[in-house]
């Protein structure tokens, strides 16, 4: 794979990650643009021979965290939630909103590992490198985050929704 095609693939991944982080297509593209501008400025710090993807994701991650700190409050973009590709229905949308709402209640340290792994584009090691934490710390945060997410969603009544969904899928 040439560097150009590799980079193009990574930019697609960045857009996916940014979309889940921001919940808004315009804000996601802004975040990706900002990331690429920073990456261009930092190109000389990239170590050839190392994996480009964690390097890019780390820049996006740091940019996002900085933006959040600047904004202080997260935009309430629930109305602009991206719609799932498969089986679009009100039920899935509602579930997604609940999961994203639950994610928002998690600390950043637990939220980001869950999102990174859900993208299914990185190994645990790469994701840990992206967040600049040791692998053990990453795994621990992922595990605690998933447990907490489950608890929050169950508290929201998502269990019922899941049951309904499964019934709907079977029919």
């Amino acid at each position: 794979m040439t560097l150009k095609s590799e980079l193009h693939s990574h930019v697609g991944s960045l857009r996916r990650y940014a979309l889940v982080l921001t919940r808004d297509p315009v804000a996601a593209d802004d975040l990706v643009q900002e990331t690429l501008v920073k990456a261009i400025a930092k190109a000389d710090t990239f170590q050839p021979g190392t994996d480009l993807r964690p390097w890019l994701f780390r820049i996006l991650h740091n940019t996002h965290v900085s933006d959040l700190r600047r904004a202080r409050t997260r935009n309430d973009a629930a109305a602009d939630l991206p719609e799932p590709l498969a089986r679009e229905c009100q039920h899935t949308q509602l579930e997604l909103k609940q999961v994203l709402g639950a994610l928002d209640q998690l600390p950043e340290a637990q939220r980001l590992p869950i999102i990174l792994i859900a993208l299914r584009e990185m190994s645990y090691t790469e994701a840990a490198r992206t967040l600049d934490v040791p692998l053990g710390t990453f795994m621990s945060r992922l595990a605690r985050g998933r447990a907490a997410l489950r608890g929050i969603v169950q508290g929201m009544g998502s269990g019922k929704l899941s049951l309904l969904k499964r019934k709907g899928e079977e029919s």
């Binding site: 857009r15 889940v20 996601a28 997604l96």
Partner: peptide
């Protein structure tokens, strides 16, 4: 939960091409 988030992320693939991103991508390459 993972599937929901994954599907949500994949919806980025249906976003219209962004020319500015494409230009920055070329510069970075």
């Amino acid at each position: 939960f993972d599937n929901l988030l994954h599907e949500s992320a994949r919806s980025a693939d249906t976003l219209p091409p962004n020319l500015k991103i494409a230009a920055l991508e070329r510069q970075l390459a």
